[in-house]
Write a protein that binds this DNA or RNA. Structure first.
Lengths: 118, 118
DNA sequence: GCATAATACCTTGAACAAAAAGGTATGCAA
DNA sequence: TTGCATACCTTTTTGTTCAAGGTATTATGC
């Protein structure tokens, strides 16, 4: 059973979705994103650095993000911004999430034939 | 890109949620559940037998389900019903799902401080 | 009569995402 | 100078899920 350490492992692909969505509004760096996600989800979702950094690297490699180094107070930060490809990817992820969500919602509601949002 | 074989791997813990929810309405057997899930989600979510059976076994082992064998047309089916413990578990899963969903929705909407449904 | 598909159960293997944990380095406060 | 917060990163482990296979019975097509 184990005490809830972060999340009881209940979603997939969500990290990427959240990260892209937050970066759409403004450029951020990894460490900042970790806290931004906690704040945006009211501590409901906590993504550790071990999740965020690999996702950022993968997204950049895929051309969905661009990064630039910036020195702030003697410290180096790596800021990420969303590319056009990244926006497209975000749109696709949102669509997938919406459909998944509708599918589950209608099952939970017991809707026999409620039309899934298209 | 690879043709969508079943699902592009986008959820977690959902199988258990869907199975418990469907069994809440009426007793069903594994093979039937596979198709019921496809029907209920309009093909949006397809869980193979390799997913459904292990979940059923695990839930039964945990006391969330009870099974009984029934011979139908010379064939043996294993019907599952939800126990009281199973209903409790279902309630918890629904709650978790709702919170996760609200958290993601408010992030996607960019709500700075919309109160999460409680 | 025979092959094939559909029903119905099940398990094993591999893939993969995410969690946990560790590792480095700087700046600041006590 | 010890410790904590910032800031980056990687490696290892875990656990779900997927794909694929394996058995057996009944119905269907030819």
């Amino acid at each position: 059973m184990a005490a809830k350490s972060t999340n009881p492992h209940f979603m997939n692909g969500v990290p990427e979705l959240l990260i892209l969505r937050l970066l759409k509004d403004r450029e951020m760096y990894g460490y900042e994103l970790v806290q931004a996600i906690r704040a945006a989800t009211r501590d409901e979702i906590t993504l550790g650095e071990g999740v965020v950094y690999p996702v950022l690297h993968a997204l950049e490699k895929d051309g969905a993000l661009k990064s630039r180094r910036k020195a702030v107070a003697g410290r180096t930060r790596v800021y990420y911004t969303v590319t056009a490809a990244g926006l497209k990817r975000l749109g696709a992820l949102i669509g997938t999430w919406a459909k998944l969500n509708d599918a589950i919602a209608s099952t939970l509601n017991g809707d026999a034939h409620a039309p899934l949002a298209v």
